[in-house]
Amino acid sequence: MRYFFMKTPFLSLMAGTTLLLAGACARNSTADVERPSARSASAETGTTSTTPITDRDAPKAGSSDYIDPAARKTAPDFRADIKKADARLLAVPGDVEALLLRAKSKSQLKDYREAMRDYNAAIQLAPTNSDLYYNRGLNRLEMKEYSGAILDFGKATKYNPKDRDAFFGRGSAKMQMFNYRSAIPDFTRAIALDPNYADAYEYRGISYASINKFKEARVDLEKATQLNPAAEKSLRRYVGNKDK
């Protein structure tokens, strides 16, 4: 899905973080729900940019034809993007899209601290850009700064209430802190925005199971499995025969 994080809070963080972060690559200037016509981050600051960042007009995560955007790039590609962003920033120091491109590329190369510098600089220039907060939230997840990630995803939903992935991200960060009850409403919001959001059903199902609501968990995990057969592992692991 989208650079998303842990596959479950009981497994390693990185399994899910990879899931979440994969989507981050595709996040540009609109919510990473693969919405068309991404808005320009630089438009909010009056700067112009001739360097487009990846679009998000692609199959949604969880669908059978979805290809993780991060899988299309290699480390040399990310380093090349950093050089491209560096050149752009020399010409236009306040170019928000170039800062975002560089930050995401650094994050992909696991240079999370340096990525934070660029995210912070971009947010100072465009403080109402939801995608900057979203992507910084992903970066914070990789750094295991879960409280900060929750705040960033919250900002993303404030400036873009229709961003399903920001709600999903916030719920996932809460799961990492074992706040399952608090995570459930976030996954519910994500599902309301996208009824076919397989990962949101899966994570909500895991959250229900974690508070011993196994019937609700089964409903969600079976729905997740219908949408994404890979979720069957969670169905077996977290529900099994517990509600029968």
Score class of each variant (00 low, 15 high):
residue 15 A to G: 15
residue 56 R to T: 05
residue 21 L to M: 11
residue 232 E to S: 10
residue 54 T to R: 07
residue 239 V to Y: 01
residue 236 R to M: 13
residue 2 R to E: 07
residue 155 K to Q: 14
residue 208 Y to C: 04
residue 143 M to K: 13
residue 61 A to N: 09
residue 92 V to A: 12
residue 117 R to H: 08
residue 36 P to V: 09
residue 32 D to M: 12
residue 103 A to N: 05
residue 28 N to G: 15
residue 241 N to A: 10
residue 74 T to Y: 07
residue 105 S to C: 06
residue 34 E to K: 09
residue 153 F to W: 07
residue 11 L to M: 14
residue 10 F to E: 15
residue 3 Y to W: 13
residue 109 L to Y: 02
residue 174 K to Q: 11
residue 59 P to L: 08
residue 44 E to W: 11
residue 90 L to F: 12
residue 210 S to C: 06
residue 169 G to P: 06
residue 101 L to M: 09
residue 195 P to I: 02
residue 84 K to F: 05
residue 21 L to E: 14
residue 168 F to W: 06
residue 225 T to F: 01
residue 240 G to C: 05
residue 110 K to S: 10
residue 104 K to G: 05
residue 179 N to C: 03
residue 21 L to K: 15
residue 204 R to K: 03
residue 223 K to A: 02
residue 15 A to H: 12
residue 189 R to S: 15
residue 199 D to Y: 09
residue 198 A to F: 06
residue 195 P to W: 01
residue 78 F to Q: 10
residue 72 R to C: 02
residue 163 D to C: 12
residue 66 Y to G: 00
residue 157 T to H: 14
residue 55 D to N: 14
residue 99 L to M: 12
residue 81 D to P: 12
residue 73 K to E: 11
residue 36 P to A: 14
residue 91 A to N: 08
residue 168 F to G: 03
residue 102 R to F: 06
residue 12 S to G: 07
residue 179 N to A: 11
residue 133 Y to G: 01
residue 70 A to L: 09
residue 172 S to A: 13
residue 96 V to R: 03
residue 228 N to W: 05
residue 145 E to F: 11
residue 122 A to V: 12
residue 207 S to D: 09
residue 195 P to H: 02
residue 150 I to E: 14
residue 232 E to A: 08
residue 238 Y to E: 06
residue 167 F to K: 07
residue 227 L to W: 00
residue 242 K to L: 12
residue 218 R to K: 12
residue 41 A to V: 09
residue 244 K to T: 14
residue 121 A to Y: 04
residue 120 N to Y: 02
residue 216 E to Y: 01
residue 96 V to C: 01
residue 113 R to S: 11
residue 10 F to Q: 15
residue 16 G to W: 01
residue 148 G to T: 08
residue 236 R to G: 02
residue 212 N to Q: 14
residue 209 A to V: 04
residue 33 V to P: 00
residue 95 D to V: 13
residue 73 K to C: 07
residue 116 M to I: 07
residue 20 L to D: 14
residue 228 N to V: 00
residue 123 I to G: 04
residue 113 R to P: 04
